[in-house]
Design a protein around this nucleic acid. Structure first.
Lengths: 203, 203
DNA sequence: CGTTCTTTTGAAGTCTATCAACTAAGGTGG
DNA sequence: CCACCTTAGTTGATAGACTTCAAAAGAACG
């Protein structure tokens, strides 16, 4: 912390600032770095030949972004900042990368489980639980937080439509499980919310 | 090839034979090795607390199995042989593992795209195309192959029900796209089959 | 302060699941 | 080697979950 103690700017060559709505990188670009989120919030999304978008992940402080490009040396997803953010450049072969890569695989398997086996209400419950847990790990409140992504982003990530997500938020609120006001969420009855995950139709 | 030139057995300590329906490893077991498929066919699947199964991948010759356990040193999925198979043990930190791990992340992203954005017919088309491409890479026919997995396995992998998969196979056959007889599939009109992937309802 | 984007909510429609019956194949043991 | 039992696959009818289409209100942005 020597060069720039005069101001908020930190012209560290190994870090980079990204403003809300800007892209850290785009699909197709060559992959020269992995990025560690210092602060801020990102989504990764793919667009298929028909123009349909799929959000494949959300990334917050401490997460690595860009590992999708390691195999082909070319990014397969767009990484978009959902708020003003700062990332730190990480060398491709760093030791941290291998470990995070393995974690990413485990995360994706859970995501497949969500998309493959769960109903819409279960998906949203799983999503809220995941966010809650991750915020808690960072020292933030697990019961009250700010959604950085739109309903459309959530819907895409969960394999639903934005109207469905909106309706479910409203329904959860009517049932006293959460409180929602646009981007702000408060989990009111965590226990009852999570029962939805175990409650299978006929088992 | 010294110790056992007398017979078909190959008591190589670094390899292991697994018979159809047997498990290479189960969820929860500690992860000591990664396995490279020498020949045969496997599925990886997770079971959630409600007992619902999700197939997260199919593995054929050349693929690595067990990378899901690298992060936590404990397997998160079951690996089941779909035919008599043989695997080779690979050390956890081998150089091949990092590369394959990265490929696995890319594959999972594509799987999320399938589950998140595609209709049932599109999913089955994508599945057949993926199998076809992988068989071709191994030197087998890309247009005629044997499905090692059941309709239920395919359905789980695609986030559908087995009846839906069965109906779609029949429909594809009626439309002259493929020929199916239980486990045997022949792709008759690849071009027209793949048009289904690009043809979006209203775009 | 108007324009645009996001969100909410309603009504109707579609796709896929569910339930159920039947056929075919595979495996097992007599 | 055949009979039996179990598993896998097909197909039809009905039901239900989620989507689609549409409209309106509330934030955000310049």
């Amino acid at each position: 912390m020597k060069p720039s103690e005069t101001g908020v700017e930190r012209p560290d060559v190994s870090s980079r600032r990204i403003r809300r709505r800007d892209r850290l990188f785009s699909a197709g670009e060559s992959c020269s770095f992995i990025y560690a989120v210092r602060h801020g919030f990102f989504k990764s999304c793919m667009v298929d030949t028909a123009g349909r978008e799929q959000v494949v992940g959300f990334h917050m402080k401490g997460d690595l972004i860009g590992m999708d490009g390691l195999a082909s040396r070319r990014h397969a997803v767009d990484a978009v900042a959902l708020e003003d953010s700062e990332v730190q450049l990480v060398p491709l072969n760093g030791p941290a990368v291998a470990v995070e890569l393995a974690r990413e695989v485990a995360r994706q398997h859970r995501a497949m489980m969500v998309l493959g086996t769960m109903t819409a209400p279960e998906r949203l419950t799983a999503f809220l639980g995941d966010l809650s847990r991750r915020f808690a790990l960072l020292g933030f409140s697990p019961t009250e937080f700010h959604l950085r992504m739109t309903r459309a982003d959530i819907a895409s990530y969960l394999g639903l439509k934005l109207e469905t997500v909106s309706r479910l938020f409203s329904e959860f609120e009517r049932n006293g499980l959460i409180q929602v006001a646009r981007q702000h969420v408060r989990i009111v009855d965590r226990a009852r919310l999570e029962q939805r995950l175990r409650a299978t139709p006929q088992a």
